[in-house]
Write a protein that binds this DNA or RNA. Structure first.
Length: 425
RNA sequence: GGAGAGGUGGCUGAGUGGUCGAAAGCGCCGGAUUGCUAAUCCGGUGUACGAGUCAAUUGUACCGAGAGUUCGAAUCUCUUCCUCUCCUCCA
């Protein structure tokens, strides 16, 4: 949620920034400003009436104590008249506030100055590429054939017990999952992130805080009986840990990491995008989350990007980093870097991490603030997060890129976790 | 699932219709002082949204949330959410 003060002070700047998202926000912004002005006007009037009502109530109390019941009755009549007006005013004000908020909540975050304008993934900017595509030679196959050949994942039985997109990891496949999760967590905690094990279900308030609700409930699994949602990412519970809190500036940055399964309905996906491990309804991910001082958040973002890059390099995966264009960026983000690894058998790039700075957009929904050492007042913090990393596509790339006639080689850094050097039949 | 108790400021905890944004203590901040990491004393110490020469200041709201009674609600009523205790169940 954008800050009203920002919009009031620089509506043109906001409109210009949102244009990078391929969005003409002028009508919405102008409607919002009109509502805001009406609301403030009505609020002032309402509060004046309330002040008057308060004065009268006090006067009546005073008269009663002095035993002047007759005079008090006269004031009561006056008070009743004010109350009648006030009832209407309060109702109107409430309605305006709701409209204003709905309008405000519907606006996406303003992209950072470095974000390129653009409509789709075509317009993303390749920032950096690391490594090179392995030459697999003859006889290589995509990962969904490898997982079957080596009995790493049982997709069919996953369909039986739950449905498509819910794979069952077995044997060395299951062990590899556990190894990757532990490797990522170890690396993240070594980099100063506090390990957290969050709940896998969240309530509505949490969904609102990080921007999944309203509007995106269709992407989450919903348990209607208890009105809880299965988390689409650990970002939601972890960032919400600090909802409605004011932290001392000295506590910043707050760096947390969490493993969790992630649940996504992915309605509307089809074709090669959902083949094998490419897109699942349930997958494992290790997430990193930071809460940072506004002046330092972009340095922190770069640090996170460097950290994620280090993970991929340790795994020896050919990857590239994209700076997302305005049109491809998520609703809540101000700047997003995507990491894509090369899937050698599919011959395509697969997204394995998305690292974003949300600036105050989430914090404003979360009421997540820090108390400034400069003015001793609360200010909205900046929140950031990134995948470090999402497992399925990392696994897909590892399997495909490292396949050979005598099995699949496990990267050196993972061997102490897997307990085997090679996946064999 | 059954029965009961309760939700007050950073914390503990008073407060059952008006002088309560809310006692007191603790904590924290500033200061004073005693010959020194303590003690004592004084003062200050919430948030949101408005108004404002956006500074001093000031208005309104907030005692889990929502609605109601009343001239007036932390205090009474209703609804709802949550927590705790006991029983039941259970990894």
């Amino acid at each position: 949620m954008l800050q009203l003060t920002t919009i009031r002070q620089d509506a043109e700047g906001v409109i210009a920034a949102l244009a990078k998202r391929n969005l003409d926000a002028r009508p919405a912004v102008e409607a919002l400003l009109a509502l805001n002005e009406q609301r403030r006007h009505l609020q002032a009037e309402t509060e004046n009436q309330q002040a008057e009502a308060n004065r009268l109530a006090k006067a009546i109390g005073q008269l009663f104590r002095e035993g002047k019941a007759g005079e008090a009755d006269a004031l009561k009549a006056e008070s009743a008249a004010i109350k009648e007006r006030l009832t209407q005013l309060a109702a109107d004000l409430h309605a305006l506030e709701e409209q204003e908020r709905a309008q405000l909540v519907a606006l996406p975050n303003t992209p950072h100055a470095s974000v390129p304008a653009g409509k789709s993934a075509e317009d993303n900017e390749v920032v950096r590429t690391w490594g090179s595509a392995p030459d697999l030679g003859e006889g290589h196959v995509p990962h969904w054939e490898l997982t079957e050949k080596y009995k790493l994942i049982d997709f069919e039985r996953g369909v039986k017990i739950t449905g498509a997109g819910f794979p069952v990891y077995t044997g060395q496949g299951a062990r590899l999952q556990r190894a990757l999760i532990q490797f990522f967590l170890d690396r993240n905690t070594a980099a100063g992130y506090l390990e957290v094990q969050p709940p896998h279900f969240i309530n509505e308030a949490s969904g609102f805080g990080t921007g999944q609700l309203p509007d995106k409930e269709g992407q989450m699994y919903h348990m209607t009986e208890d009105n809880l949602f299965a988390i689409p990412t650990a970002e939601v519970p972890v960032t919400n840990l600090l909802r409605d809190e004011i932290v001392p500036e000295a506590d910043l940055p707050i760096k947390m990491t969490a493993y969790s399964p992630c649940f996504r309905r992915e309605a509307g996906s089809y074709g090669k995008d959902v083949r094998g491990l490419n897109r699942l309804h349930q997958f494992d991910k290790v997430e990193i989350v930071c809460v940072e001082h506004p002046r330092k958040s972009y340095d922190r973002l770069e640090e996170m990007v460097a950290h994620v890059a280090g993970l991929l390099e340790d795994l020896g995966l050919h990857y590239r980093i994209l700076r997302l264009c305005g049109g491809d960026m998520g609703f809540t983000s101000a700047l997003t870097y995507d990491f894509e690894v090369w899937s050698a058998a599919q011959e395509r790039w697969l997204e394995v991490s998305s690292v974003s700075n949300f600036e105050t957009f989430q914090a404003n929904r979360l009421m997540l603030r820090y108390r400034s050492t400069e003015d001793q007042k609360p200010h909205l913090a900046h929140t950031l997060n990134g995948s470090a990393l999402a497992l399925p596509r990392v696994v897909a790339a590892l399997l495909e890129n490292n396949q050979g006639p005598d099995g699949i080689a496990i990267p050196e850094v993972l061997r102490s976790y897997t307990g085997f050097d090679r996946i064999t039949a």
